[in-house]
Design a protein around this nucleic acid. Structure first.
Length: 560
RNA sequence: UGGGGCGUAGCCAAGUGGUAAGGCAUCGGGUUUUGAUCCCGUGUAUCGCAGGUUCGAAUCCUGCCGCCCCAGCCA
């Protein structure tokens, strides 16, 4: 990053620390708890932590913050590693766990006891809550607060040895029960949990709390800048308190930034988990989920995600970013990269009455209008074609320049056709169009320059491939579902629509994870789990921008 | 009614005492065999409000208002 560019406030601090010589190398860490899948909010943190280190030639640790074995699991550890890698970041040999430091943490706790800064409390959880006071009233000292050093040390050792049941005792820091900052009212340091740990096995039955473990882990790893979200801001005095008391060789600095919230998406782990548990979505990687796994399966490119968090910025202001920003990032990267193909999502049959019965000709179609080097492909053209239902309207408004009775339209890369007859079923639905084509208008030939207002996409019936296409939309009707206590009331029932689509033959070769643009519709890619050569299952990543749909919507609103 | 943080256009966001960048959205227009892309143009922002300091304030001071976070043996 050049000096003339503006830096966010964290990069500014880091820049200053390098310039002043406070640090010669920047070391950061991304510290997820393995109790759920990573989501869009984590993308921000990952890009920030790995980004600032990479930009300054520093290093970043991927540290699994696994201090609460009751809700952590191997599955989440694996998913986290996969997701960070997929985003393009490499921790090399710096994959660590808070649990790697349990022994050192235990020693530090003993030292705190020896210094008279920690004690074993034997109050119950409920009693501790009572003694803590409220936001406006100070707390009271526990009757066990003045136990002697020897007794505390003995009890703590016996806690570790497994002599007590869960909840019988807890190790607490001795700070200030009258502090206006609740975090300083003798916070818990260790609790007893007789359950095995995903990484440490059953070596321990006492586990450190986040506040105690986090800052010290940062110190052990020589982290220079410990970046976290705003809700930890009033933990910083506690973070610093541990460093002040224990004086580790390296002193990290905690800096807080605001979380990134995406409109119409939840990032609360509890709510994400509920969506999965209750079967509202198919899993953590459901393409509608704002999880990294979900977005990957949906087909969002890494470059788009990284661009998105860059556009969101790093500040301390609460933010709720419009879905359109994300969609645009996806469109921009895919617009450049994705080859074009044709597919019909909601088919309507067109018969070209003046086209020979058994004739098939190949028309040449460009793979990318702005990148001729990507070449062309041949598409079969024949008497019976599928077109999009939305591309025909019986009583069309003046500005509708697609097919209408008596009207003309160009078939992309093919001929101009005219709609002569509309066939309906008994219910009055349009089931087929009889059209005639103009043989002089074949695309690319000398006489093909006759102009018509509209161009529509099509697929030859005889050659079409059937596919199940999943059309995704937002999961919620509420812009900020994070703020809603019961998400069930704000679920969007149409978040998934599956259609039986018709694909052009070249799509047979579409590989897993390969995104293409279906012309005039949007960007699509095969589903990484459900797609197969025999039964294609394709996800819609995002629609194309659609100014016609916008006009229609405005017209509707004006009528109301 | 304790403590901490934040308030610049619809959504993000620069700006750090010298007269409000940029992006996305919006709205016009042009090009176009994707109503896409691309290209042009488009914003009376009382810089949360009110006072004060100053030749000069989004930037400094005071008071107020609004929003977010904290009373887990969660992170």
């Amino acid at each position: 990053m050049s000096d003339t560019q503006t830096r966010d406030f964290i990069r500014q601090i880091i820049h200053d620390d390098l310039e002043s010589g406070k640090h010669s190398e920047i070391v950061t860490r991304f510290p997820p708890e393995p109790n759920g899948y990573l989501h869009i909010g984590h993308v921000m943190s990952i890009c920030l932590n790995f980004g600032v280190a990479a930009e300054t030639g520093g290093r970043t640790f991927l540290r699994l913050d696994d201090t609460n074995p009751g809700r952590e699991s191997e599955e989440y550890v694996d998913a986290i590693k996969r997701d960070v890698h997929w985003l393009g970041f490499d921790w090399e040999d710096r994959l660590t766990h808070a649990s790697d430091y349990f022994e050192q943490l235990y020693d530090s706790a003993c030292r705190l006891i020896e210094m008279g800064h920690a004690y074993v409390d034997s109050l119950s959880a409920d009693q501790i809550r009572e003694y803590r006071g409220t936001l406006t009233e100070s707390g009271r000292n526990s009757p066990y607060r003045d136990r002697g050093v020897a007794e505390n040390l003995d009890l703590f050792k016996r806690m570790r040895a497994g002599e007590f049941a869960d909840g019988e005792h807890v190790l607490r820091a001795k700070i200030d029960m009258a502090s206006p900052n609740m975090n300083l009212r003798d916070p818990a340091l260790y609790r007893i949990r007789h359950i095995p740990h995903q990484n440490a096995g059953d070596e321990w039955c006492i586990y450190p709390m986040y506040d105690f473990a986090h800052g010290l882990s940062d110190a052990y790893e020589h982290i220079t800048h410990s970046l976290c979200t705003l809700e930890f801001e009033d933990h910083r005095p506690l973070y610093d308190w541990f460093l002040d008391q224990l004086e580790p060789a390296h002193r990290p600095r905690q800096i807080e930034f605001s979380r990134l919230n995406l409109a119409y998406a939840v990032t609360s782990k509890r709510k994400l988990n509920a969506l999965v548990e209750e079967g509202i979505v198919s899993g953590w990687d459901d393409p509608r989920m704002p999880t990294i796994a979900g977005m990957r399966r949906r087909g969002y490119p890494v470059a788009a995600l990284r661009e998105f968090v860059t556009r969101a910025g790093v500040t301390k202001k609460d933010k709720l970013i419009e879905m359109g920003v994300m969609e645009n990032c996806v469109r921009e990267t895919l617009g450049d990269e994705a080859e074009r193909r044709m597919a019909v999502l909601k088919p309507l049959k067109v018969v070209l009455t003046n086209y020979p019965e058994n004739k098939v000709e190949m028309v040449e179609a460009m793979n990318h209008p702005a990148r001729p080097e990507l070449g062309t492909r041949d598409m079969p053209f024949s008497r019976q074609l599928w077109i999009e239902q939305d591309d025909f309207m019986e009583d069309a408004p003046r500005k509708f320049f697609r097919l209408k009775p008596g009207g003309e339209v160009r078939l992309r890369f093919g001929y101009i056709i005219r709609c002569d007859e509309v066939i309906k079923n008994a219910a009055g639905d349009v089931v087929e169009l009889r059209c005639s084509y103009d043989p002089d208008t074949r695309s690319g030939t000398g006489s093909s320059d006759r102009k018509v207002k509209g161009t529509i996409h099509w697929v030859s019936c005889e050659h079409a491939i059937d596919a199940s296409v999943r059309l995704y939309d937002r999961l919620f009707t509420e812009a900020n579902p994070n703020s809603v206590s019961d998400i069930h009331g704000v679920l969007y029932p149409q978040s998934l629509e599956t259609v039986n689509a018709k694909l052009e033959p070249a799509l047979q070769q579409l590989a897993a994870g390969q995104a293409v643009q279906f012309e005039r519709l949007g960007y699509f890619c095969p589903d990484e789990k459900d797609d197969s050569v025999d039964a294609r299952v394709i996800n819609r990543i995002v629609t194309l921008r659609d100014s016609w749909a916008k006009l229609e919507k405005q017209a509707m609103q004006q009528q109301v």
